[in-house]
């Protein structure tokens, strides 16, 4: 646990350093309430949810709907074009960089991670690995490299005008990661 805590702390420091928001819960049941607070404060109303083991064990669809959010789980191309938030699960975190890694050959999963203004990512705490090479090793040991793997380090950014850093260009403007211990 000591090691997991260290890796989490390192990850969080790096992730926040690139303008990401990072939260940790002990049990996945806590994710719903946490998200209701976070998204409520941001004034978000509509959500595209790509279901995953964490989202299901957290009963996110039910909880968020009960709390008054409009949650879409299908017709995601149409919905991600207009929804405020997309929720997906990611496979790994890289502590040395504050990077999330997602395997997503499915188009809907990618749309929920990229087309929306706010991306909420879900991750198991023990999936935070120390270094980038650990992830490359994991990918390399799969039967085949998945059709799409995305390394995401914070919200989208550009310094193309006068070299001034601006957050939120074509990809998400905000990235929120919720890490769950169970």
């Amino acid at each position: 646990m000591e090691r997991i805590n260290q890796l989490y702390d390192k990850f969080k420091g790096k992730f926040e350093g690139v303008n990401g928001e990072c939260f940790r819960v002990a049990k996945s049941e806590e994710i719903g309430d946490l998200l209701i607070n976070i998204l409520g404060a941001k004034g978000s109303k509509t959500i595209s949810l790509y279901e995953s083991p964490i989202s299901q064990s957290a009963r996110l669809r039910e909880k968020l709907t009960e709390a008054g959010f409009i949650v879409h789980t299908d017709d995601l191309f149409t919905n991600t074009c207009t929804d405020h938030v997309g929720i997906t699960e990611v496979n790994w975190g890289i502590a040395e960089l504050g990077t999330m890694v997602q395997i997503a050959p499915e188009v809907d999963k990618r749309l929920c991670s990229t087309l929306v203004p706010i991306h909420v990512a879900l991750l198991k705490t023990d999936s935070i690995l120390p270094e980038m090479d650990d992830v490359l090793e994991k990918l390399d040991s799969l039967p085949q490299i998945p059709g799409f793997v995305g390394f995401v380090t914070g919200p989208s950014r550009s310094s193309d005008i006068e070299r001034i850093l601006e957050i939120g260009v074509h990809g998400p403007e905000q990235v929120i990661l919720i890490v769950t211990d169970q």
Binding site: P105, F151, V152, T153
Partner: peptide
Amino acid sequence: ITTYVSLYTGATE
């Protein structure tokens, strides 16, 4: 690292 490092292998959905 850049914000996005994206790996594409073959035709996807």
